[in-house]
Nucleic acid binder design. Structure first.
Lengths: 349, 349
DNA sequence: TTGTATGCGTTATCAT
DNA sequence: ATGATAACGCATACAA
């Protein structure tokens, strides 16, 4: 009663040809000549029998699955209410469609990077897309070592020129700082993320460059790190308040690398008597709906996440197919969305 | 220079055991006793060699991939700005994680349902999740015929009791109509989707039931179908306006099965001199952000899409593992989100 | 407790 | 133009 699946042998027998011929016909191989008559017969029989080539067997022998694996930073990240990853996913989906690949979403929670590595190397997919990991990520390093087709999205691992697609963080931060400088701000604070994020370092670099290019002293922008992201919101706000009240000449503008913290600040600072943007201007990164819906709506550095996702799949499938990618790293220009969280710097007291 | 992948034979040789033993150890089989010493040795060698079992080979021989395939109604639906499918995807992701399955997203555009069918049957996944298809869908029928583990999300195919997870459409529509009746509406129009949608029929049934249960005449609610969804918005609005001006006693409430059309109506009717909700009340289905952000915000029937997605994966993996699912169809109760698009019925002229 | 042999369903090589 | 045969890498029945 066990329904064995139809195999190419069944088709071959029914069509009165060898199994090889069936394979040849179904692969539409033009280098081997098959008589039109046999070809049609095989095709007909295959259709009548509802025959479908076994994907695992094909993958085993060809070494290709026509799948790209996507590894989110944590299971579920792709469907977070935060549209960041979802937008990247949209681009990846679009690109996968164009390249003729399917998407395998890794929805597992492995105890160690090694387990994840083993899973990736098992060959369920021809290439892998890593998203938003630390630049010293072990998994990335191992995959590189193994020369497994890999493309990093939204981060640049510590290997110069290793395959990565991201926005142009330097230019993005530049845009933000230039905007603030134009508004007259001369005491800007860059709120840094965890130091292992490549984009955090790149943005800091861009921010400094903008100041330098404007011929202003380096102290115009200062670096602040409030510790790991898990810290409770209240504490973060307290520190921000302290920062904005420090010294004789306190900062007048805050540049955030994300939206959550920026939103938190924009909405909580007024409760501490600090008005946005009257007393302090705030700029965030990403410019998703979140910035748009903050009160007040945040001026934010937008990045083309869709295009980034699309480019990443194309790069990884190209790698998987053996065409060495022309260039290892791709950077997409950002755009500054000016909203209501930035205004002219207040007069010094 | 061709880097052949490490195989279990390599591990076996290095560890001085047979390939069988390697397989036994790595599968952690407890029914076969392996000396603790060999076990450790095999494990160590495997780790040193960075060995990883080939997924395709395993799938070929075991017949299981531990993957669930997701087939959206069109490529990209899962990442539409409309959060409907995205929310289902969130639930599916969550469920897949819990079941230990990965998600294979079918991002292809096949010319015919047959091609899609062939692809599904190729065994890239152990089961398939179909979303939002027509109730007479050919693909669904073929999959059922082939007894391929399949679960339908957000639709019920024309086979009674075939595996399907959806909200309780009858109850949902009931909720909406009861609300309108309480507000004094006695001329309600149900705007129907294409007739091949099971949920359209179920909601119509629920709407009628609510009227009947209230002891009101059947004419209290009337059925309207404006034709295929591709019709240009302007025409749809025109017809709606005509409807709302028809006869001596025109309708005072509109019940939509989706959000796009409801939003369109809510925002366009005022331009035609019909105020919402003063002149006409509008209720939509789904209650995603879209309803929330419409001007005025729409009263809407919410459905637990996350739970639906989660339940669907669990059902399909259960089927794939041979446990006949306890019950073929699951319905989740809806909730009515009352917002500003509904108000007391206007006094008859 | 461990090893030998076989088959899963394909594609690819080499005959014919 | 087509067919036999050998991999691919693994799991498993059976043998030892």
């Amino acid at each position: 009663m066990k329904r064995r699946r139809i195999s190419s042998h069944d088709v071959a027998r029914e069509a009165g040809v060898s199994q090889t011929t069936v394979s040849l016909v179904l692969n539409g191989r033009t280098d081997v000549r098959i008589s039109e008559e046999t070809r049609q017969r095989v095709l007909d029989v295959a259709r009548n029998l509802n025959y479908s080539r076994n994907a695992s067997a094909r993958a085993l022998v060809t070494g290709r699955t026509h799948r790209v694996e996507l590894i989110p930073i944590h299971p579920g990240a792709l469907v977070d209410p935060d549209k960041y990853y979802a937008t990247v996913l949209a681009g990846v989906t679009e690109g996968a469609l164009q390249c003729g690949y399917n998407l395998l979403i890794q929805s597992a929670l492995y105890p160690t990077w090694r387990d994840m590595y083993t899973d990736v190397m098992s060959g369920s997919a021809d290439g892998v897309l890593l998203i938003g990991r630390a630049s010293n990520d072990k998994l990335t390093a191992a995959l590189r070592e193994a020369r497994f087709p890999t493309v990093c999205i939204s981060f640049q691992p510590d290997f110069p020129d290793y395959y990565s697609v991201d926005c142009d963080n330097v230019q993005g931060a530049r845009l933000a700082v230039e905007h603030l400088l134009e508004l007259g701000h001369r005491r800007i604070v860059y709120i840094a993320p965890e130091p292992e994020h490549s984009w955090g370092r790149e943005r800091w670099q861009g921010a400094q460059a903008a100041v330098a290019d404007a011929g202003l002293p380096p102290e115009t922008i200062q670096y602040a790190y409030f510790g790991a992201g898990i810290m409770v919101p209240d504490v973060r706000i307290e520190r921000t308040v302290a920062l904005l009240r420090s010294g004789p000449n306190p900062p007048t503008a805050l540049l955030y690398c994300g939206e959550a913290d920026a939103q938190l600040a924009a909405e909580a600072l007024p409760e501490h008597g600090i008005r946005v943007p009257t007393d302090v201007s705030i700029v965030s990164f990403n410019s998703t709906e979140m910035s748009e819906r903050t009160r007040p709506p945040l001026t934010s550095v937008w990045q083309p996440l869709h295009a980034i996702g699309e480019a990443a799949v194309k790069m990884v499938t190209s790698l998987a197919e053996g065409h060495e990618a022309p260039s290892g790293t791709m950077r997409f220009p950002c755009r500054l969305d000016i909203r209501e969280s930035t205004a002219r710097a207040p007069m010094p007291a």
